[in-house]
Amino acid sequence: MRRGVRFAVDVGKARIGVARSDPDGLLAVPVETVKRDLEGDTHIRRLAELVDEYSVMEVIVGHPLNLRGESTPSTEDAIGVAGELAAAISAPVRLLDERLTTVSAAKQFRASGKQASRSRDQIDQAAAVVLLQDALDRERSSGMPPGAALD
C-alpha cells in the first residue's frame, strides 16, 4: 500500500463532497462539502486549497456510470470537474466507478434515524467517504492504484 493522504471527490450539480484518508490509507473520513459554482471555478479553487492544505498525494473522483456501466450527463460532468482539478493541482487524479455511493450514504443516514433531505451536505461527504474507502480497500487487496488515471 502506497503511503500518503488521498482525497475522494463526489461531484454533484449543487455540491461536491470531499473525504480524505489517513497517511497509511486505512480509514476514510469526511472533510467538507464544497458548494458547486456552475458559472465559475470557485469550487475548483477550494478543492485545490484543500489538496494543498492536506498535502494530498492522489485524488479519486467518482465516475458515475449508470447501472449498465454506460456514460450519462453526470459522467461527463464528473470527468469535466476531474479535468479542471487535474489542471489546478500537482497530485494525480484518478476516476473510480462510484455507482450507488450516494444511495449507500443516504441509506446509512436513514438507518441511523436522520432525515436524508435535511442532511444533504453530510450525505455528500459520506458518499465521498464510501468512494474513498472502496478505493483504499481495492488498493490494499490488489496492490495497484484503484480506478483509471485521468488522461
Rank of each mutant, 00 (worst) to 15 (best):
A28V: 03
V129P: 02
E32A: 10
D41F: 08
S142L: 08
K35R: 14
V11Y: 04
I79A: 14
R46C: 00
D10I: 02
A19P: 06
A87K: 15
S112L: 06
H43P: 02
G83N: 13
V93A: 13
I16K: 01
R68H: 13
P92T: 01
V5E: 07
S117M: 10
T102N: 00
R110S: 14
E39G: 09
T101K: 06
G80V: 00
D121F: 03
E32R: 08
T33W: 05
I44H: 04
R2A: 11
S117F: 04
A116E: 06
R140F: 06
A91T: 13
L100K: 01
A135E: 04
T101A: 11
A88V: 10
I89L: 07
E70C: 03
V34G: 00
A106D: 11
N66P: 06
D151R: 10
E139H: 07
V5L: 11
R138P: 03
T42A: 15
A88G: 05
A86L: 02
N66R: 06
A82F: 11
R138K: 08
V56L: 09
R6C: 01
S90A: 14
G40I: 09
G62T: 02
T42Y: 06
R6W: 04
L95K: 07
F109Q: 09
K114Y: 13
V56D: 05
A106Y: 02
G143Q: 06
E53H: 12
S142H: 09
K35Q: 08
I60T: 13
L132R: 03
A82I: 03
V9I: 15
T75R: 14
V61P: 14
T102K: 01
R94T: 03
G143T: 04
P92H: 01
V130C: 00
A135C: 10
M57E: 15
D137I: 01
S71M: 13
A148W: 01
A28M: 07
R45A: 14
Q108M: 12
L38Q: 12
D52N: 14
D22Q: 07
S141V: 09
V34S: 01
G69L: 05
D77Q: 14
